[in-house]
């Protein structure tokens, strides 16, 4: 049963995942070539000075990828569910929703983490070829909150699509956007190094929260 459920989600998501994987690959190629060119036209000291002292993030553009992954996968996974009451159909499967919802949400998040994680690993690899581990660690610190932002957007998309009352959708969207902003406002690589676990906790609360709109859709909630 669970395997069938997982398979169903995979069928739904395979095209978006394919496209996102291609996009991620293209962005990695671009990051690699861009770094090569950057290293060619600028003197190495100047480049390192920018990275270490000015804490520039030449990889800043690539960090959008997890957020894109989260948003695209969230929408493409939950949009079909919310049309024509297919969510209710899903919930009337002979399986407790306590297992079902975590499996469906977990599948989506798994793919978000997988795609964004592979992309992040690629970035780390590209930078590790040229720079010492301190700079690469900075990249990882800068990447982690964006990863959380990707998960936030995934959950946010699911929540907004599933909610029953429009004002709750709007308010939820505002809250998720606010948290997204909180996660992406760091201007220096390791800006979140001291507090990432707290942000992780808040993200986790958003994941757990997803159970609520599902139950509202199933049982019929208040307006």
């Amino acid at each position: 049963m669970l395997r069938a459920l997982f398979y169903k989600e995979w069928i739904k998501l395979r095209w978006p995942i394919g496209i996102l994987a291609l996009l991620g690959l293209a962005s990695l190629v671009q990051a690699g070539l861009g770094l090569r060119y950057l290293a060619a036209i600028r003197e190495s000291t100047e480049l390192w000075e920018g990275l270490i002292l000015k804490q520039q993030m030449p990889y800043g553009g690539q960090l959008v990828f997890p957020a894109v992954c989260g948003l695209v996968l969230g929408v493409s996974q939950w949009f079909p569910e919310t049309r024509q009451r297919s969510l209710r159909l899903l919930l009337h499967l002979p399986l407790s929703e306590k297992i079902l919802i975590p499996v469906v949400v977990g599948t989506g998040l798994l793919f978000v983490c997988l795609l964004a994680g592979l992309h992040g690993l690629g970035l780390v690899f590209i930078y590790a070829l040229r720079f010492p581990h301190e700079i690469v660690t900075g990249l990882v610190w800068a990447w982690l909150p964006h990863m959380l932002a990707g998960m936030t957007l995934y959950c946010g998309a699911a929540m907004v699509l599933m909610e029953t009352a429009w004002w709750r959708r709007v308010m939820g969207a505002c809250l998720v956007y606010g948290f997204f902003k909180m996660l992406t406002s760091g201007g220096q690589p390791a800006a979140y190094a001291q507090s990432l676990w707290m942000y992780g906790l808040v993200t986790l609360s958003l994941v757990i929260m997803l159970f609520l709109p599902v139950m509202r859709a199933k049982r019929g909630g208040d307006q």
Binding site: Q30, L33, G34, Y37, A40, I41, E43
Partner: peptide, 12 residues
């Protein structure tokens, strides 16, 4: 643009 990015070389 992609071609240039891949093959460009530079000297100050």
């Amino acid at each position: 643009r992609m071609f240039d990015l891949a093959f460009r070389q530079g000297a100050p």
